[in-house]
Simulated scan of single mutants.
Amino acid sequence: MPAPGETVDPSRVHALDPDQLAAAVAAARESIRAAADLDALAAARTAHVQGAAAPLVLARRELGALPREERADAGRRHNAARAEAQAAYDTRLAELTAERDACVLVEERVDVTLPAARRRRGARHPLSSLSDRLVDVFVAMGYEVAEGPEVEHDWFNFEALNMAPDHPARSEHDTLYVEPTDSGRVLRTHTSPVQIRALLDRPLPVYVVCPGRTYRNDTIDATHSPVFGQLEGLAVDEGITMADLRGTLEVFAQELFGSGLSTRLRPSFFPFTEPSAELDVQCFACRGEAARQPRQPCRVCSDEGWIEIGGCGMVDPNVLRATGVDPARYSGFAFGMGLERAAMIRHDVREIRDFVDGDVRFGLPFGIEV
């Protein structure tokens, strides 16, 4: 390119010569027509139309070297040549795009008439659903959910709950000890240790519900399992009485089995509560009629008219002292139940093994449980 202000003979600017522009357009059209796919077309466009070294781009740079009176005519010739090359590119682009789309429709075709290979929908495990349902009942009454380790220390599992090493109640738990056996670690036999931890870790008053898995050295049969779920609750506050326990459990029983059912407390014994009781609820199937009319048997309550739900009672003062709570100022109640037993009663399940056998057909009817 000549220096600024230098007079240039138009014949010296070869790239803008009409013959040169026509040759550049012809070369561009040929390269574009020969492109077999979109990648090759993009390369042809770069080489002949838009790239830094493309002949039409180099020709445009020579416009400034022409005298002023020659520039307009040369610019029109260049624009016409570039438009012709661009039109050839656009036409080939449409052709190759249509070919690609047609290939995609063939190669990626999906036969929607074939049956779908769908897996059958499962359902939540009935014990999980029941546990969440019962926890929600107590959370609605202001309780908090508390959890603890399943491998527990003997002190939390027994001693803090008023069961000394020689206490006869320990033999009823069939404890599984973690080796070495003198380590003092056991697989918790109930979720009551979580209540002890709650009293140690939380400021008073304490209102907690404790769902979880527990372990005992039981032989599995229709009603017993070495691994089972429990749900326990604890309330410790000033002025707590047995009447508060009775009212709480009545609300709980009605949420579990339905409204309009009577409840009763039968005297019992537990090392960590005094006084202690068993909670019975009126049979939700026969409404107690089986006990009054023997000719109408009820297999849900075995003709007794009542269903045993779980144990409860006022927290023993020794338990409060073990956790640093003054029994002269505070009192409380505790209750507990087995989740498998509640589910068996609620859904008329005859074998506790059905909950752990893993047969998906067993859980499907419970899919609608909230």
Rank of each mutant, 00 (worst) to 15 (best):
S225R: 11
G367E: 12
V145W: 12
A40M: 05
D174C: 07
T214G: 10
R61P: 13
A40I: 04
L66M: 03
V112E: 11
Y89S: 08
F362Y: 05
M337I: 00
E250F: 14
G358N: 00
S11M: 11
G310Y: 01
Y89R: 13
E308L: 06
I32D: 01
T189S: 14
S268R: 09
L21P: 03
E278K: 11
V13P: 03
T263H: 06
P18C: 02
E107D: 13
N318G: 15
S225W: 05
E255A: 14
D136N: 08
H125I: 04
F269E: 06
S129D: 12
R321I: 02
G212P: 05
E150C: 06
P317F: 01
T189C: 10
L261W: 06
P149R: 08
A81L: 01
A146F: 03
Y177V: 15
E107T: 12
S276N: 14
E95L: 08
D354S: 09
P180Y: 10
F156K: 11
H224M: 10
H167D: 13
P275V: 00
D9G: 09
G358I: 02
V349R: 00
A44L: 06
I32N: 04
C298T: 02
V209I: 15
V110C: 14
E6K: 15
D359I: 04
G212Y: 04
S183K: 09
T91D: 14
P193T: 02
W155C: 11
A34F: 05
I345F: 04
A98Y: 09
L134S: 13
N217W: 13
A277C: 09
L187G: 05
R45T: 01
V49N: 05
A87W: 09
A160D: 03
I240R: 09
L279K: 04
F156Y: 12
L130I: 08
D303I: 08
L339V: 02
A85Q: 00
V208N: 05
A94R: 08
E238Y: 13
F284C: 15
H78A: 07
A87K: 14
A42L: 11
A74E: 00
N157Y: 00
Q86V: 13
L256N: 08
D280M: 01
A47F: 00
V251R: 13
R100E: 10
R100M: 10
